[in-house]
Design a binder for these strands. Structure first.
Lengths: 346, 346
DNA sequence: TTGAAAGCGCTAACAG
DNA sequence: CTGTTAGCGCTTTCAA
């Protein structure tokens, strides 16, 4: 049924080796006449080499695995697109799976990927399978972490500078005259962007001589409705914030909704800035200030680096191990100063 | 280096066949003693079968390919998540690629997928490679089209009823008292959802005794800025619409922006309804009425159907060939009637 | 310049 | 109940 290299060889009256050579572009090892004849047969038979057999022999699949945790978040959709584009242009295919931030599921996926003999792995790690990550790195398996650092493991990682981003956001609020700045965070759980955004927030306050008020640090569960609760709580407390720093784009929408159910007004009573610029940020009411992250670029860089690690066969020698990209502040009306003409990059 | 079935066999003092049988769960073909011994060695050696070798032998990879065109669009992100989840729960891996709606790129991806011996394909087809799709279907290769029908090809397809959705949207506008309803569409180019949404729009008008005004049918290029131009054009023409039906979520944001630059007000002067409910719809100003589509479900169903086609080995006998899911109307303030309490499903 | 043969790691008759 | 063997489709030495 399917046409194999043997079929081509027979029809062209040559051996499989010859076909193989020609398929792989070693034209100068054969007479022009044979080359043309074989090429013609390949065309006629519409022969496509079985990548499985080839990979088995070469122990190289040209497949890269990527495990992400939330494609609803446009940040990750962009990362994926960036990674896909880079893979494609370098001749690799992408095998994707979704961990949903669940360590068990992640572990299974990694196992499955390994059996499928992927050439390398890009991951937004749950951070719950340190031993597994470590084994890969130790075994010189090409591995790169995207967005999250893995504490206690000297792995390749590419992130956006979260301390910087959070500092920019918080500082912007301070410059707009706000002092009682609340931060909304998902439970930190040792996840580096969360830790670092909190740190950036604190640094900005300290640098500006503002005391850190623990009641303004809102750690919420990722469960539905938790954010609304937190908003309600903070606005019925003694110390009502005059600004909110939301550390995730999905969270921001819920905060907006929560605030709309209070008597407080954005930005008059409370300024709001969100992490992650999105297509909808500027269309919110009021238009939302955000921290933009180079997501597409990050995905692309991660893929390129991984491919370099794969192709040099010396993952550990591909430097630098840590790449940290720069975020940007996008100022809009939600922080209190109507920017005529819309966006202002700092 | 890597541990193979031979290593396990040697260490357990059995043949490869025995190990293979046990790996595949045929426990009753061996004495309990052997089974345990082999299992123990497998564990000790941390043996993971090479899926490449297995697939080569079995001509079955448990890999499904998916080609999409735009992950930025949350609709597709949801489809992908749905598909991924179904694959995962049925023991399949997903290989993903992005055609960017480009026929050439799509063709290359399909070729690459074929060589990688994927078991089946889900695709949002560009519709530019009819011959390729046809060959797959004719060869009994498991193939399913998502969201777009492929005219002239009797392939499996799963869509959301676009005529119905567009009719619901348009009818809603009419019921709100609007008569001069404009529709914004990307160039149709034989793409079924676009054709059908236009058709649904027309049907609604006809059923309500409203003449179709060609000047209110705005076909725009997918290039940046084209929508803004179209908005400007329509609002400086003689026949200014009192409602707009936007047929894509990204488009809607641009229309909103365009309108904000006119003197017209939503919903007072012009009502707006968008295709595709998104996380941000209800946070726009004013909150946007939309047509919701079961994207996650569609992805999941497509994957399950494909898997059935794969596993029965009789793709053509898996019925029905065409699945059409139902959209829903979500009413919000952008169409002119403030809905207290927010969402109202019809 | 070309071919024969071995082997990548696995499965599945078939035989015992 | 278990082992021997052939072979999936390819690449690559080695020899001619």
């Amino acid at each position: 049924m399917k046409v194999t290299i043997t079929d081509v060889a027979k029809k062209a009256n040559v051996s499989k080796s010859t076909v193989s050579r020609i398929m792989n572009g070693n034209f100068d090892q054969n007479t022009e006449e044979t080359v043309n004849r074989v090429l013609k047969v390949i065309e006629e038979l519409d022969y496509r080499p079985n990548a499985l057999a080839r990979s088995l022999k070469l122990t190289k699949t040209n497949v890269i695995g990527i495990v992400l945790s939330n494609l609803q978040n446009p940040f990750w959709a962009s990362v994926l697109e960036g990674a896909e584009e880079a893979c494609q242009s370098h001749g690799y295919n992408l095998m994707i799976c979704n961990s949903n931030n669940n360590g068990e599921i992640e572990k299974e996926h990694l196992r499955s990927f390994e059996m499928k003999q992927i050439d390398g792995l890009m991951i937004n790690p749950t951070s719950k399978n340190l031993d597994t990550y470590k084994k890969m790195v130790d075994n010189d398996f090409p591995f790169i972490s995207i967005n999250r650092k893995i504490y206690g493991l000297d792995a390749h990682v590419i992130t956006v500078d979260n301390v910087k981003g959070a500092k920019m956001a918080t500082t912007h609020l301070i410059r707009q005259g706000r002092r009682k700045i609340a931060i909304f965070l998902y439970q930190v759980e040792g996840i580096s962007p969360r830790l670092e955004r909190l740190q950036g927030y604190k640094l900005a306050l300290i640098e500006n001589g503002i005391d850190i008020d623990p009641s303004l640090i809102l750690m919420v569960d990722e469960k539905k409705g938790e954010i609304a609760k937190a908003v309600q709580k903070v606005f019925s407390a003694d110390n009502i914030p005059d600004a909110i720093f939301s550390t995730s784009s999905m969270m921001t929408l819920e905060i907006l909704e929560g605030i709309s159910q209070t008597k407080y007004n954005i930005p008059k009573d409370v300024a709001l800035i969100g992490y992650d610029e999105t297509v909808w940020s500027k269309h919110l009411f009021p238009p939302l200030s955000t921290i933009w992250q180079p997501a597409f670029e990050m995905g692309g860089l991660a893929a390129k680096k991984l491919i370099e690690m794969i192709e040099t066969k010396k993952p550990k020698e591909v430097l630098p191990k840590v790449i940290s990209l720069d975020p940007q502040l996008i100022k809009r009306e939600s922080c209190g100063e109507a920017q005529k003409g819309g966006v202002v990059l700092e």
